[in-house]
Amino acid sequence: MGTGRKVRIMIAKPGLDGHDRGARVIARALRDAGFEVIYTGLHQSPEQIVAAAIQEDVDGVGLSNLSGAHLYLFSRVVELLKKEGVDDVVVFGGGIISDEDIPPLKGAGIKEIFTPGALLEDIIQWVKENIRPRS
């Protein structure tokens, strides 16, 4: 992970969805893999997530949604980050997301989407390769 500080990742649960098993397992797996991890807890609005990401000075934000609201919520987080002038925080996501929703999410600026059955090792590897400490 380079010579600088540890990569800081925020795992976030946007919207009203309460399914947090995946988010918490991934938060723990990333922490055990050596990243600094912040977990927002449930029921965060996109505005709250963006404010927290800026305040915590994170390098990446992992969004989790299993209620079907991902198209709006994930895209909104990226949009608000841009509005705040933040364009170097990598946003990725996961949840119950159908194959056909992946292209529009990527088009909106979500760099990667992990779907049910994704392995922790693959997610960790992806984060290592794609997220660097912001200068």
Binding site: G15, L16, D17, G18, H43, S45, S67, G68, A69, H70, L71, Y72, L73, R76
Partner: peptide
């Protein structure tokens, strides 16, 4: 029920955006 109902919100509350009738 969808999440807004489960959490005591109306379908037109800002927190319900994207969730209506989904789950």
């Amino acid at each position: 029920f969808h999440f807004p109902t489960l959490m005591g919100y109306c379908s037109d509350d800002p927190m319900a955006r994207g969730e209506v009738g989904k789950c």
